[in-house]
């Protein structure tokens, strides 16, 4: 166990270092930072002074280590476009993304597991077939089209829900939340459905196929033979045994939700880090891009690591070292 944990942590650190190198190279080689910081009226002396001041005259590895140190402290320099520290901009915008991701994730897990179990138990029912067909369409529709479709239905035609923004937000310390106002909650509905729908269908289909698999097993038959009630068989015996793959996939999907938030945030002009990142790409705002890259990598690598360790902790079959190597 310990060897496995150490190996996984070590791998994660290497991945982060490589991503850091990519982010740093963007900083260093895409355009000249000196050019970006000094205006038209500059002298050679100014350039030299700034170069020394920023440490750009030092060897590449030294600069890289300094960059990593800065990144670890949350210091990513100043946005080319907004002229403010990147860390401040991201801190302002992160709550919006995290709230959206949390609601979407919750929606995806709750609805996904529930629908998956129901469609597996009533596999031949009409409702199950309708849900399955709809989920097929849901998987093949691109996210941004789902968003537009929802906007068209609920904002343009019915005029029930807002089509953009977060509504009114309340500032709680450094955190701006949309959970506490009616308009904030209303604004959350469409984006979180858009973002969560794909993950929901994925979880639903997975739970369904796992449930069908488990329901065929001997011990389920045995449980029935013992005269246990359907509810107990389905939820205490069957569902429990489908959870290992579900937890793995769901965990990995959490990362995907944060990444796909970029698309949803753009469709709904949701003021989160995803929209910030898209704008940064459009205007080649390198510090923001680099910071976002680091942020999302840390999240991804962290989530993957936790999921892997969790998987290992939950499934006793993996505990012998031999099978751990096969993974």
């Amino acid at each position: 166990m310990l060897a496995y944990v150490i190996r996984r942590v070590f791998q994660s650190i290497i991945v982060l270092l490589v991503v850091g190198l990519v982010a740093f190279s963007m900083f260093r080689f895409v355009g000249d930072p000196i050019d970006n910081m000094l205006g038209q009226e500059r002298t050679d002396a100014d350039i030299d002074r700034l170069r020394t001041q920023l440490g750009l005259d030092q060897p590449f590895p030294v600069q890289y280590v300094k960059f990593l140190k800065g990144a670890a402290e949350g210091n990513f320099g100043v946005s080319f476009r907004q002229g403010r520290p990147v860390a401040t901009i991201i801190a302002e915008r992160l709550p919006a993304t995290l709230e959206l991701a949390a609601v979407s994730g919750l929606l995806a897990i709750v609805l996904g597991v529930a629908l998956g179990v129901l469609t597996a138990i009533y596999r031949d029912g009409i409702a199950s077939n309708i849900v399955m067909t709809l989920s097929l369409i849901g998987v093949s529709l691109p996210t941004f089209l789902i968003g537009i479709l929802l906007i068209y239905l609920f904002s343009v035609e019915l005029n029930w829900l807002p089509s953009f923004g977060r509504g009114d937000v309340v500032q709680v310390g450094f955190w701006s939340t949309g959970f506490l106002t009616a308009s904030g909650l209303k604004a959350l509905i469409l984006p979180s459905i858009t973002l969560g729908l794909y993950q929901m269908t994925l979880i639903m289909r997975l739970v369904r196929s796992e449930m069908l698999e488990v329901l065929r097993q001997e011990y389920i038959r045995f449980a029935r033979a013992r005269g246990l009630r359907d509810k107990s068989v389905h939820f205490r015996h069957a569902l429990k045994n489908t959870l290992v793959p579900v937890i793995t996939v769901t965990g990995l999907q959490l990362g995907a939700i944060i990444a796909f938030a970029i698309i949803t945030e753009t469709v709904f002009q949701w003021p989160g880090v995803g929209l910030l990142f898209i704008n940064a790409i459009q205007f080649v705002d390198i510090p923001v891009m680099a910071a976002y890259l680091m942020l999302i990598s840390v999240m991804f690598v962290g989530i993957n690591l936790i999921v892997d360790l969790l998987y290992y902790a939950i499934d006793p079959r993996l505990h012998s070292d031999k099978s751990a190597k096969a993974h």
């Binding site: 995907a256 990444a259 698309i263 999302i296």
Partner: peptide, 11 residues
Amino acid sequence: LTFPAILVAML
């Protein structure tokens, strides 16, 4: 593979 393809493409 741990990152979604669309994110890699954007980057």
